[in-house]
């Protein structure tokens, strides 16, 4: 069955003889006469399909990228709808912060006790320094603080703020040293409050960084008339993070010689007052603060300093944020 091989010239090397054998073996093969037309036809067919395929692949890539972006973003980020302020009927909304409130703790407090003495014109015998007094003086009029808030460490369920920015109020509950948020979508998030075994339960929702989501300002403790607050913010599905303390200068406190207020355009203003004449007059410093990814930070610009009488300064030594006072 083996084809007779042509003989290589005698005396040639094995390599030369192999070369001759290989050439002779494939010599009968003649290409198809239509080969060139076949190649041309396949090239043309490939070119016809290439443009639509590339276009389709491009569209598919764009769609995939868009889907990936949508999937990676926290739900509802594109929504910037702020829910209407939630205030108790007996609790007037905070002046100077319209449209920024997304919740409040009005219902937490007994009606009528949330109004600061300073707001009613009562003069304040403030102590002589920004530091809190050595002891609480229940008889003396102190600057308005969230002292009227619940002290049982629990806030009732049912009040909300749009924590995740999806346009719907989420249920916020401060309980047992932690904040729990039940989102409208059904998921929950919990964050432990730092250094607050028994928070008062007073809290407020406020969009501090104008991202469409309400940050939570929670009162954590009151010591010697000075109330401390912790800021929490939504950090993605199921996550609620405590915003790092920005240091003593940026600490959210309200009491003798200290206060803060939420600004209508976002951000906060921290107020510190120092008296050198026994509380008759105060040198009040107002520092604008913004909420950044790293936490609270000083906003650009210099703090403003003004000399105020005790009566003028008292309304500033409050936690004036979305009905938190």
């Amino acid at each position: 069955m083996t084809q007779e091989q042509p003989q290589a010239p005698g005396g040639a090397s094995p390599q030369e003889r192999l070369r001759a054998l290989l050439h002779a073996a494939v010599e009968p093969i003649q290409p198809s006469p239509q080969a060139y037309e076949l190649i041309r036809e396949r090239v043309a067919r490939r070119a016809r399909w290439r443009a639509p395929l590339l276009a389709a692949a491009g569209v598919a890539a764009v769609v995939l990228v868009a889907l990936a972006i949508v999937a990676l973003l926290p739900s509802g980020q594109a929504t910037t709808v702020e829910p209407p302020p939630v205030t108790a009927p007996s609790q007037p909304s905070a002046p100077g912060s319209p449209g920024q409130t997304t919740g409040g703790d009005g219902p937490d407090r007994p009606s009528g006790t949330a109004t600061a003495p300073g707001r009613t014109g009562t003069s304040l015998p403030l102590t002589g320094s920004a530091s809190p007094p050595a002891s609480d003086d229940p008889t003396g009029p102190t600057p308005a603080t969230p002292s009227a808030s619940r002290t049982d460490g629990h806030s009732p369920p049912g009040r909300g703020a749009d924590v995740d920015g999806d346009g719907q109020n989420d249920q916020v509950r401060v309980t047992g040293g932690a904040v729990e948020v039940t989102f409208a979508a059904g998921s929950t998030a919990r964050a432990e409050l730092p250094g607050a075994a028994s928070p008062s339960g007073a809290w407020s929702g406020f969009d501090a960084d104008s991202d469409g989501r309400a940050e939570l300002i929670v009162q954590t403790a009151t010591t010697s008339g000075m109330s401390s607050f912790t800021l929490l913010r939504y950090a993605g599905p199921g996550r609620l993070d405590v915003v790092p303390d920005g240091g003593a200068e940026l600490r959210l406190q309200a009491g003798p010689g200290a206060g803060f207020r939420c600004l209508s355009g976002g951000g906060l203003e921290i107020v510190r007052g120092v008296t050198t004449d026994g509380g008759q007059n105060y040198s009040v410093t107002r520092l604008a603060v913004e909420l950044t990814a790293a936490g609270l930070a000083r906003a650009p610009g210099s703090p403003s300093v003004s000399q105020l009488t005790a009566a003028e300064a008292a309304p500033l030594f409050l936690a004036d944020c979305a009905g938190l006072r």
Binding site: M1, T2, Q3, Q5, L18, L21, L22, A24, A25, V26, P28, I29, Q30
Partner: peptide, 13 residues
């Protein structure tokens, strides 16, 4: 045909 000739070549096998 040509292909079968090639197939049968000893060197190809």
């Amino acid at each position: 045909g040509a292909y079968s000739l090639v197939e049968r070549a000893a060197v190809v096998q």
